[in-house]
Write a protein that binds this DNA or RNA. Sequence first.
DNA 1: TAAAGCTTCGCAAACGTTTTCGTGTTTATA
DNA 2: TATAAACACGAAAACGTTTGCGAAGCTTTA
Lengths: 341, 341
Amino acid sequence: MKPRITLKKIAREFGVSISTVSKALKDSHEISEETRGKIKAFADFYNYKPNNLALQLRNQKTSVIGVIIPEIVHHFFSTVINGIEKYATEKGYNVMVCLSNESYEKEVSNMSVLTNGSVDGLIVSMARETQQNQNFKHFEALISDDFPLVLFDRINDDIQCDKVIIDDIGGAFKATNHLIEIGKKRIALITTLDFISVGSLRREGYLKALTNQGIKVDESLIYKIDDEKDLYEQIERVINVANPPDAILAVNEIYAAIALKTAKGKGLNIPKDIAIIGFTSGLISEFTYPPLTSVEQHGSLMGKQAAELLINRIENLAPADYQKVVISPTLKIRKSTLSAN
Amino acid sequence: MKPRITLKKIAREFGVSISTVSKALKDSHEISEETRGKIKAFADFYNYKPNNLALQLRNQKTSVIGVIIPEIVHHFFSTVINGIEKYATEKGYNVMVCLSNESYEKEVSNMSVLTNGSVDGLIVSMARETQQNQNFKHFEALISDDFPLVLFDRINDDIQCDKVIIDDIGGAFKATNHLIEIGKKRIALITTLDFISVGSLRREGYLKALTNQGIKVDESLIYKIDDEKDLYEQIERVINVANPPDAILAVNEIYAAIALKTAKGKGLNIPKDIAIIGFTSGLISEFTYPPLTSVEQHGSLMGKQAAELLINRIENLAPADYQKVVISPTLKIRKSTLSAN
DNA sequence: TAAAGCTTCGCAAACGTTTTCGTGTTTATA
DNA sequence: TATAAACACGAAAACGTTTGCGAAGCTTTA
């Protein structure tokens, strides 16, 4: 790479000092019209642009916000990034994305790298492993330094910082109620292992709806899927039983789509024999057959809110106590719960 | 945010010079065991970490690579980023992602910001608008400065730099051949407007396959979709005609899925009445009914290759002349072209 | 004609680091 | 005992920028 043109080089060219050049380029009245003119022309010709690193070092501000997410090949997270990026750009910030790949260690190392001056603040959704081992020291260290931090979606209430979450309880509650309203009684829940916070919250909403409607909870209808094992095999067990459920609530789109596929494979009619709802984040639900009723999570809005909280914190516009923004999911009713007649 | 601890503060604490502290922390033999010990203990206690900005400025190296893509809520691009990030991390680089949102102006401004010292190199897939107006000055400026640049997927042959592309011609050729082999004669092509490079390349592969097999090209079977208008309406016109095609090749997953939905809506049997193949990038193809045969684009591999080219270029390990890596797509045959019998 | 004011510029510090080249003191060698 | 080597550290430059302040030289005013 060719060395870029700097103030020093321009200064040498005209036999003036660096500060003269700097001021000239900023149209300072301290510099004569004549000097200003020739310096600006020269700088323009060589396409001078101030070096960002130097500016950032001097101003003690990078105007970059770091984002650490478990994975990016995931519609939900990419919509969140989209929301973050849009708002950040609007406010003059750039976005640096790192992936933890669900690993605690990578999350910690990413945070360590980013917080050494590279970014002004951090937006994080915790890795699965972090949720599992409940080791939040890296977050607490940041917080005790007053480093701007926003957690979203996969959070933990013990961590004192700004947060953005979805009302998972409410979403599952709505979905379950909808299933009850269309006459379903034996509603299965396909959820994640317990340590995933969103999984257990959605479970809570599911339980609340059942209880509210006076339906006795049948623990044998609650299935916990291990993402690291074969999904098809695990989900098959929900349907391939003597007395299958008449409805399924799945905590994500993939589980729902696989359940739908499996049920159809068994010759079951959707939604007559079995109705299905999934929490969604992607486009799959729209294109299955029949299309899946789904709980929409509004990732982009979530990203925007997270970025807003963070930037307010960075710019000292935020109130002293930490904020918690809750986003209400909406139920998008499609054919998987809506009988044709 | 609390001010971070610096070499200067440590130096002041012990009444030594900054250079002594720096050397002590690096275990230099120049510093006595005793001084080294207490300095390291102190630094450790206060969790000292060198400021990245300062290091980057001094070393004239950021170890960050910039990525500019048209959008991120798109399975293909997110898999590419995944590939880039994995390889970059392995090599000690971080990734900064910016979105052009298909806008020429945003692409230019993103590039301008990132190349002012923030990143060591750039991986770009052009915005639609850039492909449209064919204005490549911003790329050429970079190249004439020998700034490390890799273009992927949406490229232009006039730009002299490293590139990674998919063999779109080959992919469309394979797909079309497959349709011919299963006995289809009237194969429609649903493609993009002409200025999208991948669209016209896939069209070329389609035409080549037809010609090779001695099938006369019927221009009325080629449909160009404008992404900014209603997709359903435009795709409906492919199927809702007097003499509909007996097969469809769509240049992306969404077009294919919509075509499938529309065809089923008309009561057509897939694949008997109409077989469908889409270029894919996401999970939709697997979950449609029937699942869609698709041309797999290997986005993650593409990202990895792009990152590899770029980092080699940054580290001066690349040959002087520019490389062009071509990735072969593979045909994943599913039920939308595979009759049950 | 001297004081005051204005114009135009340079110096130097600051951001935080690394590294080369001294320099003064102590210890070992001839 | 003079000299060389070894040791322990500091000064300063470099990366590129901004900015307060001081200092010339010139012009105006009393």
